[in-house]
């Protein structure tokens, strides 16, 4: 899985936001905000990653059990899929 081209991640107004440019604008009305965890996942997905490697990255960063980490990763991936941001 990989983030499609056409998104800019940046800190604005003290928050991490993703703003679409060009054609990507059609799939995302305005922008989305990310927290620190989803920012990490986004960065990994920019380079290309699968569910297992993302779960491993979350486990490495936070003191939570694997099923919680995997559920979080799945929820984030679903959100991106629904908005057609990853493919």
């Amino acid at each position: 899985m990989k983030i499609k081209p056409g998104y800019v991640l940046r800190e604005v107004a003290g928050s991490i936001v993703v703003v679409p440019i060009g054609e990507a604008t059609l799939n995302l009305n305005g922008m989305i905000t990310l927290n620190e965890t989803s920012k990490m996942l986004w960065k990994l997905l920019e380079a290309g990653a699968d569910e297992d490697s993302l779960t491993a990255a979350v486990l490495n960063e936070y003191d939570i059990d694997e099923s919680t980490a995997r559920a979080d990763v799945k929820a984030f991936i679903k959100k991106l899929e629904d908005r057609k941001i990853i493919g």
Partner: peptide
């Protein structure tokens, strides 16, 4: 309007 909420309004 809080800054973050104002951002998409300006962008639009």
């Amino acid at each position: 309007i809080p800054s973050l909420a104002a951002l998409p309004l300006v962008l639009n």
